[in-house]
Design a protein around this nucleic acid. Structure first.
Lengths: 201, 201
DNA sequence: TTATATTTGCTAACAGTGTTAACTTAACCA
DNA sequence: TGGTTAAGTTAACACTGTTAGCAAATATAA
């Protein structure tokens, strides 16, 4: 029975082509301009076929959210594993996080900007959990070598992520004015302050 | 010639009633759900009258952005003036910023979420300048009493704002889980780290 | 092979959105 | 009172997400 398998394969390809067309649209005109009709036009099918592959537009966005989370998670994990010292890990992750945000603006804006994921959803997206796990484990490592081991682990993780997200989102609003090195200095400044207060205190 | 004056006054009142109706809409259903037609319905006029008072929907949002910025600026200035020591000022401002964001979610989301103001616009909105001025002056004060006076002023301001915005926006995504005191601890943690690295270094 | 059932994809519509052209009516002024 | 301007209306345009209903192609069963 190869027919059923072929059908499944074709359906999968169709689904992928929808996402591909959507992604192209996003790359050229941004998230705001993405519409079901434009996707349908691009793949040269009528609108309702898209709804037979995705429940609604949000489901398509969710797909990209997952993709982005997993990409970031993998990237952070890779970078983290290059270092043994917790402080170096936190610094490397911060740099990688920053780079990802600006190299993949579209993903980042969806993940932390448009999506506005409700907490329930955040916990249900396993790819997002993967991402936070990498950061959390680095924080854990840092606390384990810290002089004061009684610090609130979750609080520190939260602070770490907030600093990163704050820096990125404020920088993203600004149009590209300052050179890249200067931007990185801001990141360096904030993160080194955080790491010092975490480990040396 | 009181007629012309009355007309101007009436036009002003009309404009205000549009904003009032819009604000009510936002308070009940959020920014995403605000529409010109709903405003028109609320003030019991037809749609085009709104366009004779505002160029477009964005102009209405801009009005609220300005309002929010000025409210925040005033609030921060008030709080700042209660302290003389720069470190205390920075801490108080951070607390006030945080409180404002959650007490006036609608304003904050517009100012730093939806608006996505281009840099040109940001510089042209005087109310936004007022707001940044308060924070910048507090940073300046802090540097003047710091041991190392050669730190990059703009870099430090940027870091300060980023930490605040990051904390707030990450917290806003989460649904109200943790109690308010715990949230404030995160703020306290991050800001105290920043202040120490700014002044005591 | 033919008849039935199912899947596939389409058109067309519904209920919204921002925005504007064209028209009517009311208010004003000479 | 007649002519001009301003105010406010209806109705449309061009979009958006979403779905009901129908036609054609395909697969299954007799």
């Amino acid at each position: 029975m190869g027919i059923a398998e072929r059908k499944i394969r074709q359906k999968e390809e169709f689904r992928a082509s929808i996402l591909e067309a959507a992604w192209l649209q996003v790359l050229t005109d941004g998230w705001q301009s993405l519409s079901i009709r434009k996707i349908a036009d691009a793949i040269e099918y009528s609108v309702p076929v898209i709804y037979s592959h995705f429940e609604n537009k949000e489901a398509i966005l969710l797909e990209f959210t997952k993709e982005g989370c997993q990409k970031l998670a993998d990237h952070l994990q890779l970078v983290k594993d290059k270092h043994i010292e917790p402080a170096a890990q936190l610094e490397a992750i911060a740099n990688a996080y920053w780079d990802f945000a600006f190299e993949h603006k579209e993903y980042y804006q969806l993940m932390f900007g448009l999506g506005i994921p409700a907490c329930e959803q955040v916990n249900s997206i396993s790819e997002m959990k993967n991402m936070t796990m990498v950061m959390m484990s680095a924080i854990k490592n840092a606390i384990s070598v810290s002089k004061n081991k009684d610090v609130d682990f979750f609080l520190k993780y939260h602070t770490y992520l907030s600093i990163l997200h704050g820096l990125v989102s404020i920088e993203m609003i600004q149009k590209e004015g300052k050179p890249a090195e200067h931007k990185k200095m801001i990141l360096q400044d904030a993160i080194s302050g955080f790491i010092q207060s975490l480990i040396l205190k």
